[in-house]
Design a protein around this nucleic acid. Sequence first.
DNA 1: ACTCAGGATGGTA
DNA 2: TACCATCCTGAG
Length: 301
Amino acid sequence: MMRYIFEEKNQIDIKETRGGLVLKHESFNPTHIFECGQCFNFNIEEDGSYTAVHLGRIINVLQKEDHVLIRNVSLDEFYEIFYDYFDLGTDYSEIKKDLSENEILKTASDYGYGIRILNQEMFETVISFIISANNGITRIKNSIKIISERYGNYIGEYMGRKYYAFPRPEVLAKVDPLELREFARVGFRDVRIVEASKMVADGYLDFDIDQTLSTEDLKEKLMQMPGIGPKVADCILLFTYHKRETFPVDVWIKRVMETLFIGHEVPKKLVDDYAREYFGNLAGYAQQYLFYYGREEKIGK
DNA sequence: ACTCAGGATGGTA
DNA sequence: TACCATCCTGAG
């Protein structure tokens, strides 16, 4: 496992220029990172760049010919906040190499080259994936946007658009579910969101303590919260708690696994067992490559 | 007009 | 323990 980890931050090639930060990296593709289904906090600009909000900062990322241009953050901010967010301490070329021993994963990881798993903020991830239950990406993003605009703090403007931070748990905990439903269009997820917010506001989750729990125990703990079942819990484990051996099974990844690996329809739990057995501690990465590849290419559909 | 979407929940067998 | 109908909403 250690061989996938870089130890020094200075191993990435990034320089400050007047146009922004120039990042030269063999495994970093903004489109694949933001469109592979792991996050909902970004906005696509006219020039093809992605603007995302993370921990109260607005960052813009644009793919150029031989580098990635990162705008609106200083080099210090980048190292301080976004190095971890973009998981830059992990060696994805090594992960791809290992996964590529399997032909299907070679195809999928070549297809989704430059995907990186974002290390996202806890509360925002919890609420975002509670909203994601039986929901579509467009509507999920829209709900989160409205919640931020209505209950979050104003951060600033970028490329003509105003941005707001995702609200703190204490704020969402006091919101009337009916109001949430009316404005954010979250439907039957309204009470789940407020109740889960109350638990987080009361300190039910603690990143450092939770981190010491086994993946299995932490999953059970997460599933005690309203709106969090097996799949949502897995997403939180993978995208917030760095539990990369997790393999969230949604309808897409289920179809992909049944079509490309298993050969016939099986219950979701079996897909999970199969994948975790097959991919081991790289299951989370494999899931992202397979999900992106499968959804874009409509595999099994 | 109509289906169904990146599941969770509560009830039933 | 394993299934199953039901749950808001609106994009396609």
